[in-house]
């Protein structure tokens, strides 16, 4: 599996650290009730197929929202998390 960094292009998988589903970008507001926070921290769509998840590119320090397929392991590309969150 080759992973794609928006800065550096297609790179070896070992240059990346995996964080988890991109659902973690949808952070609830601080004043929201506890249940919403518990769901945010623990519950996952966990899709079989197309997914968006968070990867960190160790050499360049980019947090990336990766578009990927969990069944075929195809990596379609990624966007900087800082751009996605705007």
């Amino acid at each position: 599996m080759r992973v794609v960094c928006p800065h550096c292009g297609e790179r070896d998988r070992r240059e990346f650290t995996y964080q988890g589903a991109a659902e973690i970008l949808d952070r609830p507001a601080p004043e929201v009730e506890n249940d919403a926070w518990a769901d945010y921290l623990h519950l996952r769509e966990n899709p079989a197929g197309e997914t968006r998840d968070m990867w960190y590119h160790d050499p360049c320090g980019a947090w990336i929202v990766m578009h990927r397929d969990t069944v075929s392991h195809a990596v379609h590309g990624g966007e900087l998390a800082s751009e996605v969150r705007k």
Partner: peptide
């Protein structure tokens, strides 16, 4: 250490 349903690894 990445989510997967592929039943094969890298």
């Amino acid at each position: 250490f990445y989510s997967s349903y592929a039943q094969r690894g890298n």
